[in-house]
Structures are given as C-alpha cells and as structure tokens.
Amino acid sequence: KLETFPLDVLVNTAAEDLPRGVDPSRKENHLSDEDFKAVFGMTRSAFANLPLWKQQNLKKEKGLF
C-alpha cells in the first residue's frame, strides 16, 4: 500500500514540491480512503470505472492533476 498524505500536501502542488515517492500523475493514489471519498464523492472503485477522460477532468477540477 502506498503512503498517504493529507489533502493540502497534494492539492495544487507542483511535481517538484510533492513528497518523495509521489507520482505527480497519480496524486489521488496517495489520499486516504476517507479523503478520496470526500474529494471525489465516490469510492476508488467507482472512480476507476469512469472513462479516463472523466477521471482526468475530475482530477483537474479538484487540483489533483
């Protein structure tokens, strides 16, 4: 399991300012399950079932792209 970080560490943070080991294209993977659901309004599995373009739009909207 990946290390999780608080939302404010990941949202609207440039790649070079992210904690070590965080993939800038997969910031959402480093949210706790609770934060993930609070941000996206759905579970990880529901998010994973969305088309890629919709996932990317949601990530942009939430500052996690």
Rank of each mutant, 00 (worst) to 15 (best):
K62W: 07
E16K: 09
A15E: 15
K27S: 04
E34T: 11
G21M: 04
E28D: 02
A38E: 12
K27R: 15
R26F: 11
Q56S: 10
A14L: 11
A46Q: 14
P24Q: 07
K1G: 13
S25Y: 15
F36Q: 00
E3N: 10
L2Y: 15
K37F: 15
K37N: 14
P51R: 02
H30D: 03
L58S: 03
G21F: 05
L58P: 00
A46L: 10
E28N: 01
N49W: 09
L18Y: 07
R20S: 15
S45N: 13
N12G: 10
T43A: 11
S32H: 06
A14K: 14
A38C: 10
D23P: 03
N49V: 14
Q55A: 05
E34L: 09
E28A: 01
T13M: 10
G63D: 06
F40Q: 00
K54C: 14
R44G: 02
L18Q: 04
K59A: 04
G63R: 05
S32Y: 04
R44W: 05
K59V: 05
F40E: 00
L52E: 12
D33I: 06
Q56G: 08
A46R: 11
P51V: 04
T13I: 10
F47K: 00
M42C: 08
S45P: 13
V9N: 04
Q55P: 00
F40I: 04
N57M: 14
D17S: 08
M42L: 08
D35P: 00
P51T: 06
F5A: 02
R26S: 09
V9A: 08
F40M: 06
L18T: 06
F36C: 00
R44F: 06
V11T: 09
M42E: 01
K1V: 12
L10N: 02
L52G: 09
K54Y: 12
V11H: 04
E28L: 02
A15W: 12
F36T: 00
G63N: 06
E3H: 10
Q55V: 03
E3P: 15
G21W: 08
F5P: 02
E3F: 09
E3M: 11
K60W: 10
F40T: 01
A48D: 11
D35C: 06
N29C: 10
A48G: 09
R44M: 06
K37M: 15
L2D: 09
A46V: 13
L64W: 04
W53V: 10
V11F: 07
R26D: 04
L7G: 03
L7I: 12
E28Y: 02
L64I: 05
D23E: 06
R26H: 15
E28W: 02
K59L: 06
F40A: 00
S45C: 12
Q55D: 00
T13C: 11
L2N: 11
